[in-house]
Design a protein around this nucleic acid. Sequence first.
DNA 1: GTCGTTGCTGGTAGCGCTGTCAACGTTCCT
DNA 2: AGGAACGTTGACAGCGCTACCAGCAACGAC
Lengths: 366, 366
Amino acid sequence: MGRKRTKSGKIRLAEVAELAGVSPITASRFFRNPEALSVAKRTRVESAAKELGYVPNLAARALASQRTEVIGVLIPSLTNNVFSDVLRGIYDASEGSRYSIQLSNTRYSILQEEKLLRLFLAQKPAGLIVTGIDQTAESHAMLEAADCPIVQIMEIGPNPVDMMIGFSHYEAARAAIAHLFAQGHHKIGFVGARMDPRVQRRLDGYVSAMKDASLFEQRLVVTTATPTSVTLGGALFTDLLAREPDLDAVFCANDDLALGVLFECRRRDIGVPEQVAIVGFNDLEFMASAVPTLTSVRTNRYEMGKTAATMLIEAIDGRRPEQPVLDLGFKVIERQSSSARRSDSRPAASGAGTANKMVALPSSHD
Amino acid sequence: MGRKRTKSGKIRLAEVAELAGVSPITASRFFRNPEALSVAKRTRVESAAKELGYVPNLAARALASQRTEVIGVLIPSLTNNVFSDVLRGIYDASEGSRYSIQLSNTRYSILQEEKLLRLFLAQKPAGLIVTGIDQTAESHAMLEAADCPIVQIMEIGPNPVDMMIGFSHYEAARAAIAHLFAQGHHKIGFVGARMDPRVQRRLDGYVSAMKDASLFEQRLVVTTATPTSVTLGGALFTDLLAREPDLDAVFCANDDLALGVLFECRRRDIGVPEQVAIVGFNDLEFMASAVPTLTSVRTNRYEMGKTAATMLIEAIDGRRPEQPVLDLGFKVIERQSSSARRSDSRPAASGAGTANKMVALPSSHD
DNA sequence: GTCGTTGCTGGTAGCGCTGTCAACGTTCCT
DNA sequence: AGGAACGTTGACAGCGCTACCAGCAACGAC
C-alpha cells in the first residue's frame, strides 16, 4: 500500500534527487560534503534544490545521523547584563554556521546545572558551552564523558574539561586594589552581592591584596546573597559606612553596585573621589558617562562569547585550537571616581578644604 | 540481518516497554497522554522508565509526529535590557513545559526577520513569538499561513495575526507628557535613539500630546538611528539644549537616555527638576535609586514574556485563550525628577529658592 | 594484460518514535 | 439478551534522512 499520511506537498530530498537525476544519497552528500560530487552533479543538485525550495528536515537528519546540530549553552542568569553581552557574542558567532543555540538558565544553582546538563547531553549536542569551573562532581564526570567539544567560559582555572576561555577574577580584583593603593587609598571596603563563585574569587583577590598590605579587616567586607541591583549598592554601602565611617574607598564587585554607591554618596553629600573613591567591575557602558566618571575593571564579555562559540564550532568541525585555554585578560580603566587623593591626611566630613560642603550640610544638622 | 550500527547501549522506548511488559506504543502513550492508560500499566511503565533512566529521543519523536516541541522566538536585540526581561519571562514560562525555546535575533531588521521566519517555519515549530506588529507583507503572509499558534509581543495594534500581548506605546508617551503638563511644564523636549517602530510610536504620542496643547515645535525633537546608550543620552540632550536653551523638561524614549540626560545636567550644573524635569521610559531598576530619583513609565516586561509564553503553550495544547489580545498597560511612576515646579516663572540658574545651590556654584565661576 | 588504487555513485537498511486502524473487553442501554 | 458505546491495547507501516558497503569506471604500476 502507498503512503497514508497527508504529505502537505513537502519537498523531500528524494524530490530534489529525482529532478537532478541522481540518487537520494548523492543529493544528501551534496549538502554535507559538496566536494565529494563531480562538478556536473553538484551543479545539477544545486539548481534542483533551489528550484524546489528544498529545506532539509533537521529531525530526520538528526535521527539518521545520530547527532544534532545544536550547541547547548548553560548560563546562570538572563538578567545580568554581563551575560547578555556574552550571549550576544555566542549568537553572533553561531549565525551563518549550521549550528543553532539551545540556551538554558541555571539560576546560579549547580544542581540545576547538573539537571540541565543531563537533559542536554541526552540529546547529543554538537557542542556545549558552560559557565565557570564550579560544576558538581557528577556534572564534571558527565562533561568528561561527553563525546562533544566543550568550552568553559567566564573564568580560567586548573583542570579544564576541554577548552576554556575567560580571565582571572582573582587577579582582576587584585589589580583594582593595587590601583586604589597607588592613588593613596588605604581603608578600602568591599561590596558584593549574589556571591556566585566568580564574585567570591573577586573577594578573594581583594582580601589577598589587602592582607599583603596588612590592611585587611573583616568589617571592611559587606556581602549578601541577594541578587545585585543599583539600589542594593546603596544599601550595602550604607551598611559599610556604619561599620567603618572612616572609609577611604570602595571596591564594588560589579558596576550596578558601584552606581548605587555613587548615588548613595550623592544622597549623603559624600564627595567622590574626595572623600570616598569608587571602583566597579565589568566596565558597563554607563560607567564612562556617570558624574564623576567611574573607574572600573574592563572585561571582554562580547569577545569571550564570540570566541568561545567560534572555537567550539571549529572544534566540532575537527579543527581543534592549538591553545585550548585562552586568557582574555582585563584592564583597569582609571576614571575620576578613583583619582588621586588631594592630601595625604583624611579630609573628613568636618575637615577643611570644602567650604561649600560645610554650607551645604545644614539640611542634616538638626 | 541484525542491526549494524553501534548502539552505545542507549535505552529506547522498546526497552522500557519490554521491562514493563507492554507494547512500545503503550509506553509511548504513557509519555504523551498518561490518562489514556489503565492505572496498572501506567505505574508499570513509569517505574520501568525510571529504572532504566529512559530519556526520549526528540529527533525521532519529531520525525514520526511531524511536529517539533520548539517555540521559536524572534526578538530585535539581545543587548537591550528591555528584551532580556521579556526573555526571562519567556524562559521561566517554558521551564517545566515540554517545549524548548529557539531564539533568534533580527537586529531590528524586518528583512532579517523575514529570513529567520522562513527558517523557523520550515522546521514546523510548535509555536512562535514575534516582536511587534511591523512585519513585511511577506512575513505577515507566512505567519497567517503557519499552522501553529503565534503571539506578537511588545505592543498591541490592529489586525493581530493570532494572539497579541503588549501595550500602547503611543498612549504611554501621551500619559508621560500629560504628567509633565500637570507638573507645570510646557517646553518639553523629546530625546530618542534607535527609532525602531515602538520608539517611533512613543514619538508619535509625544507629538500628538504636544500638538493637542499647541506646544509642539519640531526643534524640540532630537532623535538618532544610533543604538541607545547612557552616553548617547547626554549627547542628544546637549543637542537639544543647543536648539532650545529654555527647555522645561525632557521626555526620554528610554531609561538609559534619561540617565544620560541626568548626568549631563549634573555636568552642566542644571538643577533637576528645578530647571529641567526628566521622564524616562520602561522604569528600569536604577531609576528608583538615582539622585534625584527618576520618573519613568513602567512597563510590564517580565510579565509580558511570561504571559506570552504561557498563552502560547496553552494554545499549542489546544486551550486557546478567550482573550487573544491582551493589553498589559503601563503606569507613570512619578518621582523627584519631575516633581512640580517651585514657581510658575522660570527659576533660572540665578533664581531664588536654592541658597545652597548659589553657594555651591562658585566651583565653576573662575 | 592483469591487478590494485582512486573517485564517484547507488542500494539497502535502518535511526526511534508515533499515526492509523483494528481488535478486544467491559459497561450501559433498550 | 443483543448491541451500541466506550475505554484500552497492540500491529503495522512509515516519518526523511544517512551509515554502510558494494559496484563501477578510469587510471597507473608491474
